[in-house]
Amino acid sequence: MMTRTLSQDLYDQLEGYIDSIEPTEAALIEVLHEAQHIFGYLPMEVQLFIGEKLHVPASKVFGVVSFYSYFTTEPKGKYVINICTGTACFVRNAESIVREFEKALNIKTGETTGNKKYTIDCLRCVGACGLAPVVMVNEDVYGKVTVDDVYKIIAKYTE
């Protein structure tokens, strides 16, 4: 068995959740959602743990994790900057917002800064097309974002 490096408390939380539902293969995706919520990401040791608890082969767990874009096997920064690149935002210049964030934080989309503070990601349509282009930082939504707003937004998340 692989040694676990992550906090036992978090594993207990996940185990508690799995015990509260019917632990079948059909529950795999919702367990992964919960695990990502608890751990922030889904490293191999967590995937193996889930496989054992649900009696699902690890290969299947990995197959599902890698299929869905919502699941991540890498830890993300404290502030995840999600730029909507759905069509409505795209035609209203979301690309230039992405470039500006990349320039400001000196990382590419999908990467995390060295101090684990910021991650830049793109998402497909939050459905607030009236506010296009839209940027989300964790749960906060910013609408009608311009290139000039980029630095102002980052400045709000410096802690």
């Binding site: 795999l28 995706i29 874009s69």
Partner: peptide, 19 residues
């Protein structure tokens, strides 16, 4: 969990089944 193809009904069904 973020897969456009799951809007297709057979894909959606496999996703509900946990796959």
């Amino acid at each position: 969990a973020g897969a456009f193809v799951c809007g297709e009904e057979t894909a959606l069904i496999h996703s509900i089944e946990g796959g």
